[in-house]
Amino acid sequence: MTQAEIDSLIARIATGERQAFTALYDRTSAKLFGICLRVLNDRGEAEDVLQEVFVKVWHNAKRYRAGGFSPMTWLITIARNAAIDRLRKRRSKKEDGGQDGLDAVERLADPAPGPEALVVASDERAQLALCLDTLEPARAEAVQRAYLEGETYDELARRFAVPLNTMRTWLRRSLLKLKECLSQ
């Protein structure tokens, strides 16, 4: 399945073509379900979110072109954002549940493989992974935690035991450094 094929399926979905929607589901649902599962680490929740993702795809296909995203990036971003929204809701529920601070921080601990494991060495490592390696490990970890675990500045600051503003400055500098590396 090439990007051009997915692109044309999304364009057909934008015109209300159900067949194209079914074809897109058949070709991309396994990738997107893999992302939901990895982010949420819970099969039932991942199934719910995958359902939401495809409902969003159907309703937002008309707006796909305007964003200037490549088709797989568009789909992956919808899936990632929906999964992160769910993950954040789960966390805030736990905090509302009256856990004390320490407990809550512990619950925020990542049950999934750590960032070292996320960036698997391979011949085709994405450019971003290479550039993340040029950052200090803690800063690369912060970027990955924000994307894959949906951690907020507040949560990151607590995790790395730095003031909120320091965390923000760190991360923004890391982003610029990444961009510099990526554009080389």
Partner: peptide, 24 residues
């Protein structure tokens, strides 16, 4: 968005149960 999406490149694909497609 494209750069960050590459962080999911290594995630294994998992075929969702057929009922999800029917539910959608």
């Amino acid at each position: 968005a494209q750069d960050f999406a590459s962080l999911t490149d290594d995630f294994p694909e998992v075929t969702p149960p057929a009922r999800i497609k029917a539910a959608v």
